[in-house]
Measured scan of single mutants.
Amino acid sequence: MKGKVVSYLAAKKYGFIQGDDGESYFLHFSELLDKKDEGKLVKGSMVHFDPTPTPKGLAAKAISLPLE
């Protein structure tokens, strides 16, 4: 699924993505496929991810940034 980063707290390594389906997904650095892309996780960045339901809500897994 595609989505847009709505927040990312680099110090805490987490944030949120708004998916194309309108839902909010929890984003964690550990799910970023290329850790070098962390600096690109800023508000408004477009990402691809696997939407995954968890006991705490919806989460983004296997997060990647589109090729530039």
Rank of each mutant, 00 (worst) to 15 (best):
L58K: 09
L41Q: 00
V5G: 00
V6W: 08
A60Q: 01
G22E: 04
A60W: 01
V6A: 09
T52I: 13
A60G: 04
G39L: 13
L41T: 02
S45V: 15
D37A: 09
E38F: 05
S64H: 14
K2R: 13
D37V: 09
G57L: 03
E31F: 10
V47S: 01
L33Q: 08
Q18R: 14
V6Q: 09
V42A: 09
K61P: 02
K36G: 13
K56W: 14
K36F: 08
Y25E: 00
Y14P: 01
S24R: 14
Y8L: 09
E31H: 07
L33F: 05
H48D: 06
G19H: 01
K40H: 08
L65W: 06
I17V: 07
G44T: 03
K13S: 05
K2F: 13
K61F: 10
F16V: 06
L65K: 04
G3R: 01
E68I: 12
P66S: 15
T52E: 12
A10W: 10
K36C: 11
D21A: 03
L33M: 10
E68F: 12
K61C: 11
T52G: 08
P53C: 13
V5H: 01
F49Q: 01
D21C: 04
Y25M: 00
D21L: 03
I17G: 00
E38I: 08
G22R: 05
P53T: 14
G39N: 13
G39A: 14
D37G: 06
H28P: 05
G44S: 04
E23L: 15
D20Q: 10
I63W: 02
A11F: 10
A11D: 12
G22C: 07
K2C: 12
K36Y: 08
P55M: 08
K4C: 11
E31Q: 11
S45L: 14
G19Y: 02
Q18S: 08
F29E: 04
P53V: 14
D20M: 11
T54P: 02
F29K: 06
P51D: 03
Y14D: 02
S24H: 11
E31V: 04
A60C: 03
E23M: 14
S24P: 06
L65D: 02
H28D: 06
T52L: 13
K56R: 12
G39R: 14
A59I: 15
I63Y: 02
H48N: 11
K36T: 12
I17Y: 00
V6D: 05
K36P: 04
V5T: 03
G39D: 11
D20W: 08
V47Y: 01
E38Q: 06
E68N: 13
M1D: 03
E31P: 01
G3N: 01
A11C: 11
D21E: 03
S7E: 08
L9W: 15
F49H: 01
G44A: 04
A10Y: 11
K36H: 12
V5L: 07
L58D: 04
G19M: 02
A60D: 02
T54I: 04
D34I: 07
K35C: 07
L67S: 13
K61V: 09
K35Q: 09
L41G: 01
T52Y: 15
K12L: 11
L9P: 02
A11N: 12
L9I: 15
E31W: 06
K43F: 11
A11K: 13
K36R: 14
A60P: 01
K4F: 14
K2L: 11
G39T: 13
A62W: 09
A62T: 07
P53Q: 15
L58R: 09
G22S: 05
K36V: 07
G3M: 00
F29G: 04
S64K: 11
F16A: 04
A62L: 09
G57V: 03
L32M: 05
P51A: 10
K40V: 05
Q18V: 13
K35I: 08
S64E: 06
E38A: 10
D37I: 08
F29T: 06
K4D: 03
P53I: 14
G44W: 05
V6L: 13
P53Y: 13
M46D: 08
I63E: 02
K56M: 11
S30C: 12
D34Y: 08
S7I: 14
V42M: 10
K40L: 09
V5W: 01
F16H: 05
V6E: 07
S64W: 15
G15T: 02
L65C: 10
S30M: 11
Q18F: 11
V47L: 06
A10Q: 11
H28E: 06
F29M: 06
L32I: 05
P51L: 04
F49D: 00
E23V: 10
K4Y: 15
L32C: 02
S64V: 11
V47E: 01
T52A: 14
G19L: 02
T54Y: 06
P66Y: 15
P66M: 15
V6F: 07
D21R: 04
A62Y: 11
D34C: 10
A10C: 10
